[in-house]
Amino acid sequence: MRQKLFEPEYVLDVRCIAGLNGIRPQTGIGVEIGALTTLNSIERSDFLRKHYPVLTEAAATVASPVLRNMGTIGGNICLDTRCLWYNQSLTWRKACGYCIKKDGDLCHVAPGGTKCWAAFSGDTPPALLCLDAEVEIAGPSGTRRLPLHEFYTGIGDNYRKLEPNELLTRVFLPASSADYRGIYRKLRVRGSIDYPLAGVAVVLKRFDGHVSDARLALTAVNPAPVLVKGVTQLLNGKIMDEVLAEAVGELAAKTAKPLTTSALTPEYRREMIRVFTKRALLAAASN
């Protein structure tokens, strides 16, 4: 709001709606997390750490400890996409002729195109995608529920399916994605406070030493958090080793489409997606 990226007529503080705050396990069904649950409560939840560790790990890397006392899971899911040409003061943006995401009609990142490439930079959504999360959205005509991957559009300046009169109210994690091993790895310039410049979430289940199911999602390198396709097929029934982890790393790097929307070069960020994927898989499969 200070940078005049948002100019709302009214601001409403919704912190105090108790019904939308809290982690409620439902036996046999999964767990329901209120949108106003702070990232700190998620990080500290023994239930989530035991059954959905990838989420607690991702929540623990968001911004800084004090900001996690204020930031919520709903806020992290709805987080605005970011770009070096967008997250600037009004004066800065005006001097550059604005950009397609706000007030202008051209993209400085991909000149000539009409698509906005601002990067989605939330930490918890890739973890939630790996866990097959669903979100509940409340509006004037009642509530609707949709899988999280359908919530994002992949378009930087219209990145989520949420109307101005709607509110994201709850997140659901199914029992079927409980008890996976989970790892989240995040690239940033400072060890705290920063948004991710590349992020990798991995969940993995093994049976008798062989991978029985695995999912991988990326953040901060596309206009939406994305599940990497083909990972389950590539890993199922195999024993995790360096070569296999390397192959999945290559696949993840191909899915990543980093552009000059953030600090560090796109090449480095793509390379780190490959490296983090490999490390995360090996860590998730280690005893």
Binding site: S64, P65, V66, L67, N69, M70
Partner: peptide, 16 residues
Amino acid sequence: SSCGACTVLVDGTPML
């Protein structure tokens, strides 16, 4: 809300 110079405790919890 990045630097923390304005941190106060609200009901004992640090917030900006």
